[in-house]
Nucleic acid binder design. Structure first.
Lengths: 136, 136
DNA sequence: CATTATAACTTGCTAAGCGCAAGCGATTCT
DNA sequence: AGAATCGCTTGCGCTTAGCAAGTTATAATG
């Protein structure tokens, strides 16, 4: 039985929350998009301090859900390189929605210029960030 | 010690997730915005089936966080009427981001025309939905 | 006016998820 | 060869979620 079969409703908000509605998934996506994180170690360095077992679990789950892919680093056999799929990258608007709200109501502080660029022209912002991901 | 003092980082995404990053908070907001839910019973009817103790807990928490307000129904002393504050209503873009993603990648189905209207003109959509909330 | 029903919770218990600390096998560096 | 590093895994305790039953206050019903 797949995760999808046990979906609680057909609502797309609910469906999305079953995938990203936990404590860590979106923060991992954040660190991969904005922090350039590509390895397990990069992600462990998140300021919120994710536990090693949770991170391993989330990476496996996100891979199974098609949000990211992994491959061994050709330069170093110990290291795995994680990359967001288009599906993962497409969570950017969700991140920006949260970011806008968190900055407005919860005193969060986004990197200089990011929210401004997003609010000015969301589509151009997404295109620019996604191009930057593809580049490196 | 307030919830804010124990914030795990200054990141606005993280700050927002500490408030709405659980299984139910955003679904409650969804039911209040799109389902016209105003009472405990309305919210219990959510297709995902929230437990009574969790709903009571979330309503109290959301009220403490300024996402919604409650007042006794003047028509019926048993009933409490819940309403979203501007802060709660401002979660609409987050909901729509999740909805767009959930429909695209997870097979969720939004009510006819909603996603189209959002993608066509997000600002106008938000204005329209918020006006509808204020009206009733 | 007594009874029944309804609304909004609360309580108790069990199950699932999160978090910390320690350990492990496979590389790679010195 | 020995030490360090990388990506995990394991064990355990704690917190949160979920289910079922019960409680109080108000309102409708006969």
């Amino acid at each position: 039985m797949t995760e999808r079969d046990q979906r609680r409703s057909t609502c797309p908000i609910s469906a999305a929350l079953e995938v990203v509605g936990d404590r860590w998934t979106l923060l991992i996506v954040r660190d991969m998009i904005f922090g350039g994180a590509r390895t397990y170690r990069d992600l462990l360095a998140a300021p919120e301090g994710i536990a090693t077992n949770i991170l391993a679990n989330r990476l496996a789950r996100m891979q199974a859900l098609g949000i990211l892919t992994s491959l061994p680093d050709p330069q170093d056999g110990r290291r795995m390189i994680y990359r967001l799929t288009p599906k993962g990258l497409d969570l950017l608007p969700v991140l920006m929605g949260l970011s806008t709200w968190g900055a407005r109501y919860e005193g969060g502080i986004a990197p200089e210029g990011v929210l401004e660029a997003w609010m000015e022209d969301p589509k151009a912002f997404v295109t620019r960030v996604q191009a930057a991901q593809a580049a490196d």
